[in-house]
Design a protein around this nucleic acid. Sequence first.
RNA 1: GCCGGAGUGGCGGAAUUGGCAGACGCGCGGGAUUCAAAAUCCCGUGCCCGCAAGGGUGUGAGGGUUCGAGUCCCUCCUCCGGCACCA
Length: 821
Amino acid sequence: MENSYDHHQFEAKWRERWESDSCFRWRNDGTKPKYYVLEMFPYTSGKLHMGHVRNYTMGDIIARLQRARGFDVLYPTGWDAFGLPAENAAIARKIHPRKFTGDAIVSMKTAMQRLGLSYDWSCEVNTSEPEYTRAQQLMFVEFFKKNLVYRASSFVNWCESCQTVLANEQASGGTCWRCEGHVNKRRVSQWFMNIRSYADELLESLDQLPGWPDSVKNIQRAWIGRSEGAEILFQVEGVSAPLKVFTTRPDTLFGSTFVALAPEHDLIDRMQLPSSKKAAVGAFRSETLLQAVKDRAQQEEKRGVFTGCYTINPINGDRVPIWIVNYVMMDYGTGAIMAVPAHDQRDFEFAKQYDIPIRTVILKEGSDPNAQLAEAYTGDGVLVNSGSFDGTPNREAIAAITAALAEKQRGKATREYRLQNWSISRQRYWGNPIPMIQCDACGPVPVPEDQLPVLLPEEVEFTGRGSPLGQIPSYIQTTCPTCGGPAERDPDTMDTFMDSSWYFLRYTASRCESPFDRAVVNRMLPVDVYIGGLEHATLHLLYSRFIIKVLRDLGMLDFDEPFARLYNQGMVNDTEGRKQSKSAGNVVEPSRVTDKYGTDALRLYMMFATAHNAPLNWNDDGPRESRTYLNRLWRLQDRLREPLSEHNATMPSVEFCPGKAEKELRKTVHETIRKVTDDVERLQFNTAVAALMTLTNAIYVYPEDAHAQPVAAAYRVLIRLAGPFVPYICEEIWSNIGDGSLLVARPWPEFDPTALIVATKEIAVQLNGKFILTIEVADAATEKEVLEHALAQPRVDRRIDGRAVKKVVHVPGRLVNVIVA
RNA sequence: GCCGGAGUGGCGGAAUUGGCAGACGCGCGGGAUUCAAAAUCCCGUGCCCGCAAGGGUGUGAGGGUUCGAGUCCCUCCUCCGGCACCA
């Protein structure tokens, strides 16, 4: 006890003891209510950075606290172990991705264990291991059998430097999400998952997620991008199949003076282009298709080419020209629009440039129908130049015109989505092989279950060019499981977002033969608290929600959403607020801080510095300042030596609290229990730490001549409350002052609301809403007594200055507001 | 451009439902301890006027609702995040 605080002397000791006593084991025996705490598992980059420390400390505090409160806590972790960086390391440094990943796991796991994180490591999951690979391949085969995956050859986002296909959200802004290289359009045959068929549910069930931050829900809503409108069929001259157009403004149909197609649109190949137009059309298409997605999206100038072909407007029989334009995207809607220059700014600009007629069909109230438009009018109004619909308010005309088209079988109300279907094929080695065989006679055939998993071949040369698996004949060449003839394996691996969209199910049965145990998963999920970065708002979190709904519809589990509550921890930046990065040379190593100040000091600093979701700009003084507090916590052992040796209670007892000082301390103890418990529940770790400091201060200033039992007990409560935040020092102190048990095995202190009631309370007195002073009134005082007491104050009386009191507002227990003229 | 979120002391940040703005910490000032210093413990600390008692003022700017606004409403400014020819 006389030793000064030296973290080196006991961190390893307690880590080993917690491990050997299985303190953090998930029991899964149904005897206690369950609690599932989850963090976004790390990608196996090899380094643990401050962002991880911040994220995992939050989860660890919740896990430790909930265990103490009597929950059967599942708090697991694992490794997002497949992916491009390991493969790139293989190409650059000739290290096999399996070795690179294995080494990374060893070093990261050691670092994570040093942080005192209370994971149940027996649940550990590694997405690159054969068991996980097999489980996911079983699920893929199931998806295939139920037609949830399909093969399509289409224009996809192609990253030139990664030589791979990207999902739309992985190519946001025209740059690759991983290497930030240019993304082009390219026609490739891929496996897709039909996430769009779940778009409505993914959107609507966001409203049933009160535990999610609005920011993430809004990002997902925008990402899904549902818009209501109509699909309209245009007859193209010389082509039998009608052209489908999507619009949100069917009310403007009479104003459509041309139809515009995306350059990729396949109708262009089926139209009979006049020979005079063929060269220009061909040139425009190939030029546009060669452009990187980003360049095309950022191109301000609207350009296009007239095809020489015409189509018939189904509402009025107008013959309108068909153009191919650079501002219509194949990805959205039908890749074709009815252009209405008068009421759409983009169409307006295009029509001006190419001298296409502009016809007003919506008139703003009180404006001149013949006025020249300076820009498109997109507001509301009344229909003109629209035949029998003239005079109809445009909002009504939307439904009316849609109905008129439906009657003629020329259109219907419909919805479109910004969300694209999920392309899951990757032309990479270090991923989960797609368990499919392509047979010329039988088509795509799944690998039979008894032959799973399809494992990656070990002997591979990593050149960084083309398809790594496709170049290995011994892997590719196989026989068809159906007909026995020669066939080829799918040369691709699955997008790693597939791995991470169900790993949290696997934790509950990490060695199970089937992908997961249905009964256990149904009991443990949804995850109670999920913590991770906001950067996964549209990728991982949307895919996970989708996969859970798919598994539900396949009858494999019985809930709708994977994560009941979601929290996004803020970034850890450098001192200037810039992102930490190797290239900027501003990375602070967690181990350097923990060596010098101890794990607890680092954890405490990260929790105290700022709110959980605000960015944390690193402050070099922070860990030292936290250490100062820990020293203060430590020294109380010595300072309270006598009280602690005389009294072994773990709570301040009422009978030992006769005087004001004792009662006040007891009140502070219970306020702290309540505040720490509530604050951790809301992830307000900074204010929880502040409450611990307040109790610490109260113990320091507790009068020496007051009764010893309350202060000894208060200190024991403090150590128990601080345990989840700074576990090592608290376990060590507890071994000196406790009851011989391990602190981590102690239940959480009980909150007693009656301890908050003391004899008097403070009431603020205001005059005309302006604060004057506080008065002390008896706890049981009536309203009349409180008001009399307030008005009797000389300072209040002086400020009233003889004016008549018009009204008095009394908020019991809080304030009195005296209103005078 | 559109959709979110946020602007509070010298600094990091508190303020559950509209009810004493600035909890807690850093820094700073004072005191105790010490031969002295560090460390430690105690007290003080939004700003302005005042020796003090006391008074004024104050949550990005302006307006509004209310007995009462950091909190609710409107307009504007700044910063951060998301989306961006989405038909």
